[in-house]
Computed example of a mutant assay.
Amino acid sequence: MKIKIISSHKILYQENIISIIAPGYHGYFQILKNHTPFISILKNGCLKLESKNVKKKIKIEGGLLQVKKNLIVIIL
């Protein structure tokens, strides 16, 4: 799966990942490979990204998340 985290000015993070846990409006949720197309509002919290060798946490203050064809786009 690929992920792009975008602010209004630039791409903040772009990488291949195995999974993501994100702070949705009604609670945290996880996305894995071949997830159905999905759009969610994100609230304040922490994105937890996992790739083959690395686990990364990114604090956010809300945004939007879209999943489509193993591409996750997050707009902050």
Rank of each mutant, 00 (worst) to 15 (best):
M1L: 06
K2V: 10
I5E: 13
I6W: 11
S8K: 14
S8Y: 14
S8N: 13
S8A: 12
H9A: 14
K10M: 14
I11P: 14
I11N: 15
Q14W: 09
Q14A: 13
Q14N: 15
E15C: 06
N16H: 14
N16E: 12
I18T: 09
I18N: 08
I18P: 02
S19V: 03
I20F: 00
I20T: 00
A22G: 02
A22M: 03
P23T: 01
Y25M: 09
Y25P: 03
G27P: 00
Y28T: 01
Y28P: 01
F29M: 02
F29E: 01
Q30S: 09
Q30A: 08
K33A: 08
K33T: 05
K33H: 07
H35S: 03
H35L: 01
T36A: 07
T36G: 00
T36Q: 07
P37I: 05
F38L: 04
F38T: 03
I39V: 08
I39H: 02
S40P: 07
S40T: 03
S40N: 08
L42W: 05
L42C: 04
K43N: 06
N44D: 15
N44K: 12
G45T: 03
L47H: 01
K48L: 06
K48A: 04
K48W: 00
L49A: 05
S51Q: 08
N53M: 10
N53H: 11
N53C: 15
V54Y: 15
V54K: 15
V54C: 12
V54S: 15
V54F: 14
K55C: 11
K57M: 15
I58S: 12
I58F: 12
K59E: 11
K59N: 13
I60F: 11
I60C: 08
E61M: 12
E61S: 13
G63I: 04
G63L: 09
L64F: 13
L64H: 09
L65H: 06
Q66P: 07
V67Q: 00
V67A: 05
V67P: 00
K68S: 10
K68F: 08
K68I: 07
K69T: 07
K69F: 13
K69D: 11
N70F: 05
N70G: 06
N70C: 04
L71W: 15
L71A: 11
I72K: 02
V73E: 10
I74E: 03
I75F: 13
L76D: 05
